[in-house]
Amino acid sequence: MLDQSEGYVTSDGRKIGGVVMEMKNITLRFGGVVAIKDISFDIREGEIRAIIGPNGAGKSSMLNVISGFYNPQEGEVWYRGSLRPPMKPYQVARQGIARTFQNIALFEGMTVLDNVMTGRLTKMNSGMFSQAIWKGRAEAEETENREKAERIIDFLEIQSIRKTPVARLPYGLKKRVELARALVSEPSLLLLDEPMAGMNVEEKEDMSRFILDVNDEFGTTIALIEHDMGVVMDLSDRVVVMDYGKKIGDGTPDEVRRNQDVIDAYLGVAHD
C-alpha cells in the first residue's frame, strides 16, 4: 500500500490527496481472451484520472472492474485502504462510486427529473409502507431528494428539459442527464465511460467544462475513459494508457505525450 498521506499539487494549484483506489496486478479473462493483463495503477483523492487507449485496448473492461461489474481472475482491488472482496454493482454503488455508460443507460420513457431522482435510490431508507402512503419519512426523504436533484439540474444547466421525456432528447443532452443521475448520488468516486463519444466540438467543450466544475465544486474524484486525446490531455491530472490489455504508459499528460510506446500505439506500429 502506498502511504495514504502522500499527495501532490497540480500545475493549476489543486491539492491532490492520498490514494482512494488501487488496482494491483489485475488480469481479466473472458474464456481464452485476455482483456486486461497484469495492470496496476492508483486513483488519488480529488484528481481527474484518465484511462486512454485505442479501440479494443480494454478500457471499458478496466472501468467495469473498478465499478465491480467484472471480477478479475487475478489481482486485488483496494478501496479506501481495504481489500475489496468481489461485490455486486449495487454494493459498490453504496460505497459511493457512481458511473455513466458509454452507450447511455437511461430510462427512455421517464422524464429527466425522474431519471435524475433514480440516482438517489442508494440514499433512500424509508420502508415500502411509508412510501406507499407517502407520509412521514418517505415524504421528508422525497423533499430532500428533490432538492438535491434540483441543485444538480441547476448545476448542469438542464432546467429547460426538466419535464421532458429522455427519449426526446438529443444525444449530447442525454449524456448530461446521465452525468446528473450519477452526481445526484453524491459519489466520492465518479466513473465516466467515454463521456464525449459521439459529440461535436461544442458539446465536448461543454462536457469538459462540467467535468472540471464537478471536480472543483464537489471535490469529486473522477476516473474517465476517453479516446479523444486532445480532450483528455487538457482535462486530466494523470493518465493511464492501455493497448491490447496492457498498460503502456502512466503519468501526467506531458509525460504520456512524450512516451514512445504511446506514440506508437496511437500512430500504429506492427505488434509482435
Partner: peptide, 9 residues
C-alpha cells in the same frame, strides 16, 4: 415585488 424560479420553485 420580485419572483424568480430557482431550483424548480
Amino acid at each position: 415585488a420580485y419572483r424568480e424560479k430557482e431550483f424548480g420553485i
